[in-house]
């Protein structure tokens, strides 16, 4: 049986969380996890716990800010939003990712094409 669901590449979770927050605006951890699952369309294994550890890191770097608020079900939840520094970082990392994935893609092309 072939494994159809992929592990998240090391270091890319930060990028994906930043992008999600940029697109969706302030979100709580559960919301981020749901969103990533939606976008991954079931092809991505997202350990929801690691999202919270990733958020701790991003808050420490001041790329993301956190604030307590009320969820749609009127529950107390912590909402995260991208800061200006986070946006700059996201842009830089996106460019970097595209460059690398392009290179990796070109390297892999001949094999997959044959």
């Amino acid at each position: 049986m072939t494994e159809t669901r992929s592990q998240i590449l090391q270091g890319t979770l930060d990028l994906m969380v930043l992008k999600t927050l940029e697109q969706m605006g302030p979100l709580h951890g559960y919301g981020i996890g749901r969103r990533l699952e939606q976008v991954g369309q079931g092809a991505l294994i997202v350990n929801q716990g690691t999202i919270y550890l990733c958020l701790v890191r991003l808050v420490q770097k001041k790329w993301v800010s956190a604030e307590w608020g009320k969820s749609e079900n009127n529950r107390k939840a912590k909402f995260y939003a991208v800061t200006k520094a986070g946006q700059a970082q996201l842009q830089a990392e996106t460019e970097n990712w595209q460059r690398i994935s392009g290179v990796v893609g070109r390297v892999l092309q001949p094999e997959t094409g044959s």
């Binding site: 951890g29 559960y30 929801q48 919270y52 529950r75 939840a77």
Partner: peptide
């Protein structure tokens, strides 16, 4: 964080509890 470890622990716990409730 080291100086306010207790408070941050409690907040993290609350956050995870909220996550579980929503799920």
């Amino acid at each position: 964080g080291f100086l306010h470890l207790g408070k941050q622990d409690r907040e993290f716990h609350l956050e995870l509890e909220a996550h579980l409730a929503m799920a």
